[in-house]
Structures are given as C-alpha cells and as structure tokens.
C-alpha cells in the first residue's frame, strides 16, 4: 500500500522539480563552481612554494565547500517554493497524507542531487588534477573513498537543507540561516581553537574528514574527535533530524 502510493507521489514531485527553471541553473551551477574552482585551486597549489603537510585531496575537493551552496539553494527552493507560491495547498489536496507527500518530495529531490553529485565529484577530481599537474594524485582506494564520501556529503547536505526549509516554510529565511552556517562554519568559526570542539559537529563540518578537507588528522591542530565515516554518519543524523522536524511541522501546522 505504502509503496504503491509512494510511486505516484514521487513521480509527481519529480515532474515538479523538472518543470521549473531554477532546477537546471542551481544544479548546473553546482557542477560548474565545483569543477571550475577545483582547477583554480589546483593551479594555485601548483604555484605555491611551501608544501609541508600537502594533501593533494585537500586541493582536489576544496572547491566543494563553495560549490555545494547552489545545491543547498536547490534543496531549499524545492521545498520553499511550495510555500511562496501557494502550491502547497494544491500539493496537499492531491496527496493529503503528509508523510506520503513528504517522502515523495524528499526522494524526488535527493535523486537529482545524488545524480548531480555523481557527475560533479569526478568532474571536480579530474579538473583539480589538471590544475595540480605534477602534484596531483592518481585514483587509489583512498581517493575512491573520498570521492564516494563527497557524493554522499553533497546529497546529504541537500537533504538537510530540505528539512530545514520544511521546518521554516520560507525560502528567504532558510537561506539566510543556512548560507552563513555553510560559509562561516567552514571559513571562519572553524579556525577558532576554543570553538572548534563545538563547531566540528556542525552539519557543514562533519563530512570534511572523509573528503580530506579537515586538515591532516595526525596534526592536533586539525584532528577531529570522530573518523571519516562517523563524520558522514553524523551528517546523516543531522539530515534525519531536519527531516523529522520538517515532517512534524508539516503535520502539525495548517497549510
């Protein structure tokens, strides 16, 4: 029963995503920013003179921290546009069971996010290697693990953003909260030693160990209190909490 009713809800939500322009440009921008910036970062590392503790994967995937932002915007728009346009009332009239509607929406949004990640991460990798030139890395098991982690990270970040948007029911407000978290968390607060015990658990930080973006884990200045896959698990936890919160708001409040 659930599976047979989930399919039409999923297909319908996929059509919604497919038929607005913002989908194409947010997803394309994700790919372009990640891959384009990866080349520039790689090239700047190639030109650098000091390379202590140099991790080619840091240079490879660094661009994802910025490139994930259009993907966050995508996730927020998929949910937020329902409220800004009023479509939510048509949606819930068509699929009045809130859980079914929400499950269909989350799956329909996660699928393109994952597909784009599957394109973006390899494109980012090869673009970065082109930039790094002789300092690049070849595909080995460490790189493959980081790449898989990066794909999951991007998808989960997008799902997390959806959940937050479903809780707040407002595109602008959600972006005003999420974008600073994703900017400042990585670039700013994370470098303050005292705060790092807390900020290392923020959703934009937990996926960084697996992507080699958290700095050398042997160095106490950078070491996190969790390993790469635990970190990704924490992100999955963040995403789940956001989804449950979003679902509860959807179920409780009038549309």
């Amino acid at each position: 029963m659930i599976v047979t009713s989930l399919r039409p809800a999923f297909v319908s939500e996929l059509t919604k995503i497919r038929t607005v322009r913002s989908t194409a440009w947010t997803l394309l921008l994700t790919l372009l920013v990640c891959a384009g910036l990866a080349y520039l970062v790689g090239a700047s590392f190639r030109g650098a003179t000091r390379r202590e503790n140099f991790d080619p994967l840091f240079a490879t995937f660094y661009s994802l921290t910025l490139g994930q932002l259009p993907l966050v915007v995508f996730g927020v728009l998929v949910v937020g546009a329902e409220y800004s346009s009023g479509t939510i009332r048509a949606s819930l009239t068509a699929v009045p069971r809130r859980g079914l509607y929400f499950a269909g929406k989350v799956l329909a949004c996660a699928l393109p996010a994952f597909c784009v990640s599957l394109l973006t991460v390899p494109a980012t990798f090869f673009s970065a290697q082109a930039g790094l030139g002789p300092y690049g890395t070849s595909l080995d098991s460490d790189v493959a693990a980081a790449a898989v982690g990066a794909c999951l990270n991007l998808t989960l970040i997008c799902v997390f953003a959806m959940g937050v948007a479903a809780m707040l029911r407002n595109t602008t407000l959600t972006l005003a909260i999420l974008l600073p978290v994703f900017f400042l968390g990585s670039q700013g607060l994370g470098n303050i030693p005292g705060l790092r015990t807390v900020t290392q658990y923020l959703p934009d930080q937990v996926g960084m160990v697996v992507m080699h973006l958290a700095g050398p884990q042997g160095d106490p200045r950078w070491a996190r209190d969790y390993g790469p896959w635990t970190g990704l698990g924490l992100l999955a936890l963040w995403a789940s909490i956001a989804l449950v919160g979003g679902f509860l708001v959807l179920r409780r409040r009038d549309a």
């Binding site: 039409p8 319908s12 546009a81 346009s85 479509t87 048509a90």
Partner: peptide
Amino acid sequence: NAVHGGRSAHDHLLWLAQSN
C-alpha cells in the same frame, strides 16, 4: 493564484494528474 509562476499550465496539471 496558488500556482508556481514558473511552471506552465500543462506542467502544473501534469504533476497533479501523476500524483493521483
């Protein structure tokens, strides 16, 4: 007016149809 302004009339009806 509760229709996404960026979606065509056909596509609006299409997703509604698919959902049911």
